[in-house]
């Protein structure tokens, strides 16, 4: 079993919420992701069985959505936007800086399993770019100094990437 009893129960509870069982697919992907941190074929197959849809259906849909890693990633998945508005504000320099700091390429994970670096498409935070998403949070108006502080904090076992602060937008 790849999924906890709790997640399995949550998936079961979704089965009758919508007109079709299949409509619970996307919410199920979120549940699996929340528990496992990625969507592997094994986890997806099991979720499909619990939901009562075919394994093909869940893999077909899940493979489309880039929000969910399909393989295990580092504890902190750094998703840096490198679309136009953030790039105009220096996002690419920032990606280069993070690469250098962590000694990894985009797409890779540090050997200690702490950080994975991704570049992602527009996060809808163009007015406060450059921006990166780590866990549930956006980190906005990024500078090298801010990145230094964040990486240090995370390296020292600080605040979890998924922790939430009440007002995340820096307007």
């Amino acid at each position: 079993m790849y999924l906890s009893e709790e997640t399995r129960e949550k998936i079961k509870a979704l089965r009758d919420k919508y007109p079709t069982k299949k409509a619970a697919l996307l919410p199920t992907l979120h549940l699996v992701f929340d528990e496992c941190g990625y969507l592997g074929t094994d986890q997806l197959d099991e979720a499909a069985d619990v939901l009562g849809i075919s394994r093909l259906e869940i893999n077909e849909a899940a493979s489309f959505y880039t929000l969910f890693p399909k393989h295990k990633v580092g504890k902190y998945l750094l998703q840096v936007c490198d679309n136009i508005s953030c790039s105009l504000r220096g996002a690419d320099n920032l990606v280069g800086y993070i690469k250098e700091k962590l000694g990894i390429e985009v797409g890779d994970t540090t050997p200690d399993g702490l950080f994975t670096l991704w570049t992602v498409e527009c996060l809808g935070s163009c007015g406060t770019g450059p921006v990166m998403q780590v866990g549930d949070r956006y980190y906005e108006k990024l500078t090298r100094e801010k990145v230094d502080k964040l990486l240090d904090k995370w390296k020292n076992g600080g605040e979890d990437g998924s922790s939430k602060e009440p007002k995340q937008s820096d307007r």
Binding site: T20, K22, A23, L26, A61, F64, Y65, F68
Partner: peptide, 27 residues
């Protein structure tokens, strides 16, 4: 009113893909 959270796909802002996504299909 139910909330459906997307999966990181620009195409789902297009109304027919959005409906496919809610239906649980590849959008």
């Amino acid at each position: 009113i139910h909330i459906v959270r997307g999966g990181g796909a620009y195409i789902c802002g297009e109304e027919t893909s959005l409906m496919e996504s809610i239906e649980g299909k590849r959008p």
